[in-house]
Design a protein around this nucleic acid. Structure first.
Ligand SMILES: [Mn+2]
Ligand SMILES: [Mn+2]
Ligand SMILES: [Mn+2]
Ligand SMILES: [Mn+2]
Lengths: 218, 218
DNA sequence: TTATATTTTTAGACTAGTCTAAATTTTATT
DNA sequence: AATAAAATTTAGACTAGTCTAAAAATATAA
């Protein structure tokens, strides 16, 4: 089968492909995995040998069907475990990512499907990210962020684009959890800082923060 | 921290120490881990450098306090995950060991304690093996096996000494699950084959099988 | 108690994954 | 189109863990 390392490369390539990029660059992968471009080149060659990616020197890399299937299945595991940790073991949404990074590699079909069933087939993880179904089908978020809204508009929080502990923790303190209802009261022209109502409470939020919060208009 | 490999060596040494052996041999470890004695020697040196074992050339190896703590905590994880898989995800007792071998290495204090709580602090795993408490305290089974019993004696199944899929599967077919009540009806003198009543059903069981079944007399 | 068998260790080689430094290719800029 | 800059690949080295074959130490037996 595939090593943890190979799986992490496939996942990284998958995520980098989502921005519609054709041919994921060596540097981008290296940055995402906090490794060096030369290491990435070595690994790409191995993945190409295993028919998990297609690759021509200097031209970037693309997942094959086989490679995409592996990546999506890892992501499915990751997000199901995050649901488990939050729903069943009472972890907070800013605590689960690192654990899920390890659990995701226990990639056994039966375990995944039993877990899915135990959790009652959740559609989204604790950060609002969609969980691929068992056939690998996955709905991608439309990325409307809080920063796209105008004064007077209303919306609901449905996800985050940034998953760092500090960001998630900050959001929770501002009551900006999944499902929170928002009304835009004012926007500072200079730096796009927003004054909003979150479940009827006044909150001030920077552009840095608002552009990473995914919302659904209503 | 420690690698998966190091943890597996510590666990193997721990288990081999349980038979009261003073100084676990290189060959025994190699056999248990299905590796070569020369590999074991290399690893022992590394574990000794990390103060996880004490070791003198040719004299066998012993766990230090530190090494024992790691081993017991891995075993605690392993057994808690086995309980989870059986109790919550409806796996059978012959299906969980290999998955637990992987899950046990996600050795994060908070996860272990939350899982323990979620499972309502179980004392034994699905094979009757005792689960160490959070301070590493562990009760060892007294090894009274079915094969120790005489005609007419009564007992209850409390565990197994052999964990192979085929053995566990066979036991289940003979209704010899944890808690099953046994009465010894007859013993063949030649090969110690037993004729027993299991929850009032007649069962014939070989010595090979009966000497791996841990029971409590009553 | 010397010879033989067994166990354990050492020496040297191999794979996976990583790194630095240097070479090559592609892209951007004059 | 020539040159500079950036991205990518190659070359060679390193670590963790493993192996085979040979040497050394210990245990067993004549
Ligand atoms: Mn995550
Ligand atoms: Mn998530
Ligand atoms: Mn087990
Ligand atoms: Mn068990």
């Amino acid at each position: 089968m595939n090593s943890f390392t190979e799986e992490n490369y496939l996942k990284a390539i998958y995520k980098l492909s989502l921005n519609g990029v054709q041919g994921v660059s060596t540097n981008a992968i290296a940055y995402k995995l906090a490794t060096k471009p030369s290491s990435v080149t070595d690994m790409i060659k191995k993945l190409a040998d295993k028919k998990l990616v297609s690759y021509q020197k200097y031209q970037g890399v693309n997942l094959t069907k086989k490679g995409r299937d592996v990546a999506v299945s890892i992501i499915r595991n990751h997000r199901l475990w995050e649901v488990f940790l939050v729903e069943k073991l009472n972890f907070k949404w800013d605590e689960v990512h690192d654990l899920a990074e390890e659990l995701e590699h226990i990639n056994t079909h039966k375990l995944t499907e039993r877990l899915d069933e135990f959790l009652d087939f959740p559609k989204f993880d604790p950060h609002g990210d969609p969980i691929p179904d068992k056939d690998g089908y996955i709905v991608q978020h439309k990325d409307i962020t809080l920063s796209d809204l105008k004064i007077g508009e209303k919306a609901v929080v449905v996800g985050v684009k940034e998953h760092s502990k500090s960001y998630l923790n900050y959001l929770e303190q501002q009551h900006l959890v999944l499902g929170a209802e928002i009304i835009i009261k004012d926007i500072v022209e200079f730096d796009a800082t927003m004054q909003i109502l979150v479940n009827n409470k006044h909150v001030i939020i920077s552009n840095q923060a608002s552009k990473n919060l995914i919302v659904k208009k209503n």
